[in-house]
């Protein structure tokens, strides 16, 4: 029983970090109707930026986010301005897939050139340090990273649902044409959204890069997981990204304990398939959009 509780806690802590990475991706889809397959490499790029700041300036991983998140925000805006806004509306989803894949390949190539394919890991005193609670030891970093996820996701929620920009954003999500007719600059909203999503990837990169070793090719496995999360949660839904992240990681951990790690993905995908049969829109997909 203790092992099961432990597995659930580990799943929740890891799920929080995945929620951070996936929330940016689902937000981008919700507003821009594009599938940003570069989100995985954005996370890895964020991790490398934190790594470089820590190695050269000895900047704390979380303090470093004050530099890396704005930088990544700017990168997202540039990508939107340079590539995404030129896509025509009728084949936007397919073309966005190709464009963001190209962006991902370029970034991966640059990272490989600069850092090689050797694995690295983020370091700070709290990455491996632990504290004990009823016979179980938690890493400080897991708790800090989960806390960061909660803070950033709460901030994102307030931004989307409690600000004037949020109204513009949600209007653009529901109907870009109608939003433009009432005076909303949809292109500007899109640029800021891609910037936000990319900045969140920087924060996710710290969580990912301190949890395991990474190299530029680590983005491939990551993007697959993120796509699964936003499909399960419902494309465009922040709540969905959060719940799906926790669900995926907790189901994986619990299956490993109760049955076998070999079957953990199968169990999750069976659940995903069954859910999509009854709710093709995912957990919080279209329903949430209508409620907005």
């Amino acid at each position: 029983m203790a092992l099961l509780i432990q597995a659930v806690i580990l799943g929740i802590l890891s799920g929080g970090v995945y929620a951070l990475m996936a929330s940016g991706m689902t937000l981008i889809f919700g507003v821009m109707r594009i599938i940003n397959v570069a989100q995985g490499i954005f996370v890895i790029l964020g991790a490398y930026l934190s790594y470089k700041l820590e190695q050269t300036l000895h900047l704390d991983l979380f303090v470093g986010l004050l530099l890396t998140m704005p930088a990544m925000f700017a990168l997202g805006v540039v990508v939107q301005w340079a590539f995404i806004r030129r896509l025509k509306r009728d084949d936007r989803i397919m073309m966005s897939f190709l464009v963001t894949y190209a962006v991902a390949l370029v970034i991966e190539g640059v990272l490989t050139f600069l850092f090689s394919t050797n694995y690295v890991q983020l370091y700070a005193w709290y990455v491996d340090a632990t504290f004990g609670v009823v016979g179980f030891y938690f890493r400080y970093f897991d708790v800090f990273a989960f806390g960061l996820s909660v803070v950033l996701l709460a901030g994102l929620y307030l931004l989307v649902y409690r600000t004037r920009f949020g109204y513009s954003l949600r209007a653009s999500m529901q109907d870009p044409t109608a939003a433009a007719l009432i005076g909303i600059d949809v292109e500007r909203v899109s640029a800021i959204t891609l910037g936000l999503g990319t900045a969140l990837a920087a924060a996710g990169g710290v969580g990912f890069g301190a949890g395991s070793l990474f190299n530029p090719a680590s983005s491939y496995d990551l993007i697959l997981r993120l796509v699964v999360i936003i499909v399960l949660g419902g494309l465009g839904s922040l709540q969905g990204a959060l719940v799906a992240s926790l669900l995926m990681l907790v189901v994986g951990s619990v299956t490993t304990v109760l049955w076998s790690d070999t079957w953990s993905r199968l169990v999750f995908f069976v659940l995903l398939t069954v859910l999509l049969v009854f709710r093709p829109q995912g957990l919080f997909g279209r329903l949430e959009a209508r409620q907005q």
């Binding site: 580990l10 799943g11 395991s212 496995d221 990681l249 994986g252 490993t256 304990v257 790690d261 993905r265």
Partner: peptide, 11 residues
């Protein structure tokens, strides 16, 4: 046993 796609070994 664990599968080749496993990345989270902590459990």
């Amino acid at each position: 046993t664990f599968g080749p796609e496993t990345t989270n070994y902590r459990t």
